[in-house]
Amino acid sequence: MRTISFGQLWRRAVAVAALALGLACKREERRFNATSPSAPAYAAVTLDTLQPGVPSPELSVKSPSEGNAYDISQGKQLFEQWNCSGCHSHGGGGMGPPLMDNEWIYGSSPENIVATIVEGRPNGMPSFRNRITANQLWQLAAYVRSMSGLEAKAPSPGRDDDMQYKVDEQRTPIRTPRASSSRNVPAKSERP
């Protein structure tokens, strides 16, 4: 049997650990100075597959912000700073439609959302043409998608700094305790 000295074993262990660390540490990219696929991209966005004549080729625009935690959090910051919340209310909807449900009037792909922001939509959504750079548009779109779970969970912001809807326990009205048998459990027929 070949014997391995302690020194050899130690060196091998360090090498394996270094390799594992090197593979595990994937640093997320922050593209501060990159240019993004821009203007013509959303000009070609369609909302429908129905087209006259021969179908136009698939759009080959890919959002650079998809799955990028930094970009999504930047998008979140811009969403608040530019007062998107004024109408969409942190995603819950108010004057504008909610963004955290699964209903998309003008499409849910990043290109569709960018097109909606740039062109504006009837009944209130203003057009932000020329006022937001391509990078920021993709960041905003990525954040909007993260609100309804279309982005991966890991890069999406996990916590809100805003006001929460839940009322503190000590501020809720006093309720008399009830026996466990009469606990407020919906009947089986009422459960979804």
Binding site: Q81, W82, N130, R131, I132, T133
Partner: peptide, 20 residues
């Protein structure tokens, strides 16, 4: 007033009034 500047900056006496 028509490009990206207005989204974040203020110039008092004009339309620009963002405090980002």
């Amino acid at each position: 007033m028509q490009r990206t500047c207005i989204m974040c900056h203020t110039i008092s006496g004009t339309q620009a009034g963002s405090s980002v």
